[in-house]
Simulated scan of single mutants.
Amino acid sequence: MNNLVRIAPGALELGRPLPWNVYDANGNVLLRQGYVIQTDTQLEQLFERGRFKPRKIERPQDEVVEDTRQRNPFADYPDLLHSLEATLEAITDHDPSAQKRLTGLTRMIMRTCAEAPDASLALVHLYSIGPTVLEQVLFHAILSQFIARQFGLEDNRISVLTAAALTANLALVPVADQLNASNKLLTDDQRGVIRRHPTRAIQALKTAGIDNKLMLRIIAQHHEQADGSGYPEGLSGTEIRPEAEILALSERYVAMITKRAYRNRLTVTEARRLVATLADGKYRPAIPKALLQVLGEFPPGVLVRLDNNEVGVVTGRPVRARGPFVKAIIGPRGNRYSGTFERDASVLEFNIRGVEEPEIMPSMDFSRIWGFSA
């Protein structure tokens, strides 16, 4: 591989799964996606020796050949983030390819979630420790389309909602990572940027030739609240489209389970408990209920401890009175298994005792655990 480049300082972090494979200068895999860097020494060695495969930003072709490969959300993760970045840049730059890029990315996300739903939901939880703003936007889109389907929206509305989720925070992208990393109170200027971001996103989309009325309305309303306390118009009740509430709840859930400089992240158990309270005045009651149904008690990607004292990662939600399904990765005595063992948590011995929140997440080969070919 002669197209590998050095890893820039700051691209990788301690305690966070690698977003892509890391290679040496000769193209040999040093570490696979999902490996968690444990020490500063490891991090320094990766910056010194490690390489990664960069993505080229290419203009979409007029004739698009349908990609019929099996969708693997983990292998696709870098491409999805790359495509998202290119799409938002195209919108900001008023590039004629913006509409085509957004349509293609929306289709890819919807197809990925349809073909590999549990693995797609796992992405949200495996990378929720300290996601970049682009990762958060991708998570909003993934969750929005799952909630919308559970809520009962038809495919064309789900598609428009997914596109809205990908672009609603366009105006915040340049500053969001900085805001999340700050433990200081927001300034008046920063609060103004936040309150104006739906309007600024709509202006950028219109200038780029993207003018779907439903999509723009979803973006305009996604910070309104059913009790009238939202912004920018102070709408209430049924004045707010359900798609806007779904996007708002997706953003809120991701914020709950994400670590910020100014607060700790909630466990999934705590976040689910809080979501259950949101049906009282802030959202249509069916929307928080839809999110809880999508997640289940133990969502894919969450680490759990079983009654036999093993620790594993939830890989699948319950199906016909079986599950949740767990791949055990750590034995009862704390020893790391060389492989993984599938456990059906509906079996008494493998009942889930509770969610695990280790100081540092264990390394995992995500594609292998979820059964995708290399």
Rank of each mutant, 00 (worst) to 15 (best):
A276D: 08
D188H: 04
P242T: 11
Q221K: 07
A86Y: 00
R195Y: 03
E243C: 07
E224K: 03
T258A: 08
I246V: 11
F366T: 12
L12W: 00
Q150F: 06
A86M: 00
A119G: 09
L46Q: 02
I240P: 13
P78Q: 00
N212K: 09
N169D: 15
M364G: 01
F74S: 02
P285S: 13
D188M: 11
V65P: 00
R32S: 09
L46D: 04
R157N: 09
A181F: 02
I91A: 00
L46N: 03
I210Q: 02
R157D: 11
G312W: 08
A276C: 12
V36W: 01
A204R: 11
L102R: 10
V275E: 03
V5Y: 06
N156A: 11
D307T: 13
D227L: 11
I129L: 11
V326C: 12
L102Q: 08
T41G: 02
P324N: 13
P324L: 01
L31R: 10
R101D: 07
V160Q: 11
K100I: 09
M215V: 08
Y77W: 12
E349V: 09
D189Y: 13
P19C: 01
Q99F: 15
L266G: 00
M1K: 13
S83M: 10
Y283Q: 10
G316V: 00
E349M: 05
I329L: 09
G331Y: 04
G296D: 05
L179C: 00
Q293N: 15
F74P: 06
P242A: 11
N26C: 04
W20I: 02
L105A: 15
S159R: 10
Q136I: 01
I202V: 10
E13W: 00
R353D: 11
G371V: 02
E135K: 11
T199G: 07
I37P: 11
K184S: 01
N309C: 06
P358Y: 10
L12P: 05
D93F: 15
L105Q: 09
L170K: 05
S373I: 09
A255K: 08
D118N: 12
D118R: 05
S144K: 06
S367D: 08
I158P: 12
R305A: 07
V173A: 07
L46S: 00
A116H: 04
L46T: 03
L80W: 04
R16T: 12
P324F: 08
A255N: 13
L138F: 01
P54R: 01
A208Y: 12
I240Q: 05
N264H: 02
P285D: 15
N351M: 13
L143G: 10
E135V: 07
E233F: 13
R322H: 14
L121H: 09
M108N: 14
Y23L: 00
Q42V: 07
L186I: 03
D227H: 08
I91F: 04
S236Q: 15
W370F: 14
K184D: 05
R59H: 01
E359V: 14
T92Q: 14
T162W: 00
G334K: 01
Y23C: 01
V319K: 15
I219N: 05
A220K: 06
D155Q: 15
S182C: 12
R265I: 01
V326K: 11
F151D: 04
L185D: 02
N28C: 06
E224Y: 09
N28Y: 10
N180C: 05
I352G: 03
R157H: 14
N309R: 05
Q225K: 15
L43R: 02
N21Q: 03
A226Y: 03
N351R: 14
